[in-house]
Design a protein around this nucleic acid. Structure first.
Lengths: 336, 336
DNA sequence: TGTCATTAGTTGAACGTTCAACGTTGCCAA
DNA sequence: TTGGCAACGTTGAACGTTCAACTAATGACA
């Protein structure tokens, strides 16, 4: 391993001078010495040691991307395409700015803190359900925090989210505007404080607007896989009066559409379905799925924008961005 | 920040003793002292500093997950669900074993080496196109390397791959067995040494088996988005004699099916389509897509198995696993 | 001639850990 | 009364870097 000392010896200067050259500190080193040092660095193949650097400077250039999961055996981290598109955008921008990305799933606030302290991380992206416990832990760390899709609003952290509530409201209103009155809601398991809860609340609010009574018996919660979607369909069959269905995730909407078709129920003739997310499959299913669009890549870019500003020490007046949604009309909803 | 020295001071022992307790080195410390130290660690909230640790021990407990991309502005890293499922499996297993995961996209071998050296990484997962240049760089690093879906076969590295060639062969043979003779091939851009090339070669080989001449004019390369798939469909329309189509990615197959439907071409009545990957959408499109199944989660688990064995210093006799594929018959192919 | 500023460096401690090489007891057998 | 040997430690250097504080030489100017 080549160290800064080797470069110093090779060029006949002190390690400090080499360090200064590496960091481009100007006005302290002659042009000739700079040239010599850079040559030697190339020739010997010197690569800075980040451990040493972060040990002495207590800044590591590492940003943590932490996903909080609730169940112990949840291995679905990043199976959701949402995460991949977002992380992809984050990784590339961070890299261009000289930062590194460390990935981690945590189950508790202690785990989170330990993780960040071990590596004296410079920043944190947090996604998943935000529990109160996290609050103090994160504030105590005193590093930039950007929450992604985590429903807590505080000036302490930056927040990148989506108008989940409004989007879901819009979806429901759309069905209502098409003459539907008996509208069900299907969703993967709704956890307190998550995006799915917001979407659920949006659905309820839209019903309330036009005084349609909320009926818990036509709210269907299941996993997202096709088998579970079939169970939802069996439930739906028990409520033949349902004419419209708001589904809080496209992937589930697609599964339900498949299940309905298997049971001889036509979409949109017999039942109208509207999804959420506008993932690529929405336009590929039959009929193409009417859904609520969100830009996941943009979400990642905005999150990293926040992070870079905070890392640069800027104080932001706006610490919150909530992406708006857009209803994409396709063919899975019909006028009653 | 609480250090090992603080714990030492608090309990009246030397830092070394604290270090020994932390590492569970037995026979050197009395039970009482162990108890005291552990108490103090809890009370003061001590968390080991990984930078210091890795500086002195030159082992960082960090594993790099590196994706090699060719084009400069390729921001698609991990948009592919393949990556997410695999990384998810890798992260959780690595975590259980006390390792950390760092993500990175690289464009050159130098970038790769610099990245790994900066953090004196303990291991490397490499995915993407393997160029010859990488070979020496990786060997020089002297750390465990597990290649995922990178087509180079050498005892120096572990290799987790898929029978892409055979899978694609099977897909093509299946169409042939159903009476098809004029069979096109559609794929995202084929790069030398990638999985897509293997799939392309499998297609060609299957044609050769039954002496169907290969025709470059019915090989369609495009991006994976719906717009590009429509272009493929326009091309296909110029070859009305095509009765079957092998598509090297489900997502593209679904896009093409949509494009064909828009053009009044029915699947499978007018043209049979077979995909590759068996991603969740395959069973959700209409008609459900006949495709080649692969287990991406298993791929991640096997990769991390290799890694953990190598990290433990074991010498493996088998350094290569090639997952087999399975043809899933659904409804997008018909008997001619 | 003396003072000050500028340029181009150097020195040495510090960051938090680990690890090889040393202490210091106390006990027991020869 | 010595020697040996566990048991339970301690000491101090080292890992590669940074940073505040210093030096040493040159030149300008009053």
């Amino acid at each position: 391993m080549v160290t800064i000392r080797d470069i110093a010896k090779e060029t006949g200067v002190s390690p400090t001078t080499v360090s200064n050259v590496i960091h481009g500190i100007s006005g302290r080193v002659s042009a000739e010495t700079i040239q010599n040092i850079n040559d030697a660095i190339k020739r010997l193949g010197y690569v800075p040691n980040m451990s040493a650097r972060s040990l002495v400077s207590s800044s590591s250039k590492v940003i943590g991307f932490v996903n909080h999961v609730i169940v112990k055996d949840d291995r679905n981290f990043m199976e959701d395409p949402f995460h991949s598109a977002t992380i992809g955008a984050i990784e590339s921008t961070l890299r261009e700015n000289g930062y590194y990305l460390m990935l981690r799933t945590v189950e508790t606030a202690e785990e989170l803190v330990t993780f960040l302290q071990r590596w004296n991380m410079d920043g944190l992206f947090f996604t998943g359900i935000f529990k109160d416990k996290f609050y103090d832990s994160m504030v105590g760390l005193n590093i930039p925090v950007v929450l992604i899709d985590s429903y807590i609003h505080t000036p302490h952290f930056c927040n990148v989210g989506l108008e989940d509530f409004n989007g879901s409201c819009d979806a429901t209103r759309y069905l209502i505007s098409k003459g539907h009155r008996r509208i069900g809601f299907a969703s993967p398991n709704i956890k307190d404080g998550g995006v799915l809860q917001e979407r659920f609340l949006g659905y309820k609010a839209a019903l309330a607007e036009v005084a349609i009574p909320f009926d818990r018996s036509i709210v269907f919660q299941q996993e997202m896989d096709l088998e579970s979607c079939r169970k939802v369909c069996d439930e739906i069959c028990k409520h033949p009066d349902i004419t419209g269905l708001v589904v809080s995730a496209d992937i589930m909407a697609a599964g339900i559409m498949t299940g309905l078709r298997e049971r001889g129920i036509r979409v949109p003739e017999d039942i109208s379905v509207i999804g959420f997310d506008d993932i690529s499959l929405a336009q590929l299913v039959t009929p193409p799925l009417t859904t609520i669009h969100q830009d996941m890549n943009l979400k990642g870019r905005l999150a990293v924008d926040f992070m870079l500003q905070l890392l640069a020490g800027k104080t932001l007046q706006d610490t919150e961005v909530t992406l708006s949604t857009r209803l994409i009309e396709r063919e899975s909803v019909r006028q009653l």
